[in-house]
């Protein structure tokens, strides 16, 4: 018996269904490929929210701003090939906010830490204490496990199935 594994993409995804005798807002049902087909590059759109924690999805295309966060984050590439460049933060670059990603505002000044080139299914550590930048020649999709922060975009009414 052979199997065919179905993995969505920007060009081809088959969204599921939600049929409930309940308020659909309680379930916030969305699809990351559909969202990234409509969003601007590196708009970090919240798709899951658990009190202070969240998951964001972003369309990776071109170069992102430099980001940092006061805690670890984790990125999972769901489509495409994405480069993640890492630099160590200098003391005056370290974030002072509580949680979530924030733009650095300028190129990082610290030591280069390294680079990861990741493709579909790869998970990348975005470590606390680092600045990171994403680059992708072609449109891709990245899912980020993080906390809600200054760069998190909430537009639940636009992305979720409501009826």
């Amino acid at each position: 018996m052979s199997y065919k594994t179905m993995v969505g993409s920007l060009d081809s995804y088959d969204k599921g269904t939600i049929d409930l005798n309940d308020d659909l807002k309680h379930y916030a049902f969305s699809n990351i490929f559909e969202i990234c087909n409509e969003s601007a590059p590196y708009e970090r759109i919240m798709v899951a929210s658990n009190l202070e924690y969240c998951a964001e999805v972003a369309r990776a295309e071109g170069s992102s701003p430099w980001y940092t966060a006061p805690h670890d984050e984790f990125a999972i590439v769901m489509e495409g090939e994405i480069e993640f460049e890492f630099y160590q933060l200098e003391d005056d670059e370290k974030p002072t906010h509580d949680a979530g990603a924030i733009k650095l505002g300028a190129d990082p000044k610290g030591k280069r830490m390294g680079k990861v080139t990741a493709r579909r299914g790869h998970e990348v550590l975005l470590p606390q204490g680092a600045a990171y930048q994403l680059r992708s020649e072609k449109p891709g999709v990245v899912l980020i496990q993080t906390s809600a922060g200054p760069e998190s975009v909430e537009k639940w009414s636009e992305i979720c199935v409501l009826k």
């Binding site: 052979s2 199997y3 594994t5 830490m113 390294g114 990861v116 790869h122 550590l125 204490g129």
Partner: peptide, 28 residues
């Protein structure tokens, strides 16, 4: 059930001293 998928590893370049910070693996 996943024999039809292709699995590769991320390309990782690590500067000395950051081995426990620059990290990735194939979750799938």
């Amino acid at each position: 059930a996943f024999a039809d998928m292709e699995f590769d590893h991320p390309d990782i370049e690590v500067e000395p001293g950051f081995e426990d910070q620059v990290h990735a693996f194939n979750l799938f």
